[in-house]
Simulated assay, not measured.
Amino acid sequence: MLRKIEKELNVIIEKKDQDSITLKGLTGFVYTAESRIRDIICKVERIENRKRVAILTSSTVEWQYRRGRKFKAFDPFTNCDLEEAFNLQTTSVQIKINSEVYNADIVYKVATRGRKQIELKRVQLKASLPLNWEDMKGQSVVLIELKADSQEFTEVEKEFRKTSLSSNIIKIERVQNCALWRNYMIKKEELEDKNKHKNNEKHLFHGTGPHTTDQINNQGFNRSFAGMNAI
């Protein structure tokens, strides 16, 4: 894609490092090339973010459609579309089954194409959650403020002080997100199998602004949230 831009606009694109490039050429063409490259980056970030959400969703909920006597799971992206419609209480959404477009009724769990109907099913996957988590009462994300005299608060505070930061701690909250936890455990097991040992975790801290905390709590870390607050 970058080589195509170079050829079309007669510019030179040099990769300085993993996160930056340099453009050389006539000013007008350089501006056009920069605009196209930014569009490409935004498109890739949207795709990656969509993929992340789809994977997280499929780790907690599985939408299926009847195929003969059995039910078959949808692909992660269709699964995500159906679950989003379910959570938004949308009555219907268009999906594809075997490359054919159907209108999925979220309420009655049926996909319709003309006179043809296919039964749908939503399966809530069970996740093994930490024993110290509190009852989430059916919610997907819950924030629990830790008591200052609790062992968990003390342990987190101790780890934070190791960073040599002198910030005043106002409160510490535990983020209980079933989807993120399940996805984390899957990746943890993959690393343990790959590295042949279990010493693959580190306690790290990352600074951010108040406008991105909800996104991080719900979707996890994403480079598109990055700003000037990292520590």
Rank of each mutant, 00 (worst) to 15 (best):
R113E: 09
D149W: 10
Q117M: 10
G220H: 04
W133V: 04
V30M: 12
I97F: 10
E84L: 07
S166R: 11
A33S: 10
D193V: 07
A230F: 12
D214R: 07
E62C: 01
L120F: 00
Q89G: 07
K7Y: 12
I172V: 12
V30P: 01
S59L: 06
F74A: 07
Q117F: 05
F221E: 09
Y65C: 03
T213S: 07
T212F: 12
I170G: 02
W181S: 02
R67C: 06
S140T: 08
E145K: 15
I106C: 09
F160Y: 15
L23C: 03
Q89W: 02
G209K: 02
K196L: 05
W63I: 06
D17V: 13
V142P: 01
A104P: 07
L26F: 11
E134S: 11
N79H: 00
F77A: 03
T163P: 08
N218P: 00
R223I: 05
R115Y: 08
R3K: 15
D39F: 03
R38F: 05
I21T: 02
E190C: 05
S35G: 05
V142W: 02
K15M: 07
R115T: 01
K202A: 11
Y108Q: 15
V44A: 13
R174F: 09
E189Q: 15
H203D: 11
I106Y: 06
N217E: 08
W181D: 06
E145Q: 15
G207L: 09
Q176F: 12
R182G: 03
E119W: 08
N79F: 02
T90A: 14
V61E: 12
H206C: 11
V101M: 11
W63A: 07
S166L: 14
R38Q: 12
G207R: 05
S128R: 06
D135N: 15
V123K: 14
Q139C: 01
K202I: 08
I144L: 08
D149L: 12
M185A: 01
L146T: 08
N217H: 12
E201M: 03
L56D: 08
H197T: 04
K171H: 11
D39N: 11
K171F: 09
F71E: 01
T213R: 08
N98Q: 12
L143A: 03
N49S: 12
Q18S: 10
F77L: 10
S224T: 10
L143P: 00
F74V: 03
S166F: 02
S164Q: 13
I169M: 07
T32G: 03
E192H: 00
N177P: 04
D19W: 01
K7R: 15
N87T: 06
K137F: 06
E83C: 05
K196Q: 14
E159H: 11
N222S: 10
I144Y: 13
F205M: 02
Q18D: 14
P130D: 07
Q94N: 13
E45N: 12
E6C: 13
T32A: 13
A104Q: 09
R67I: 02
A85C: 00
A111W: 10
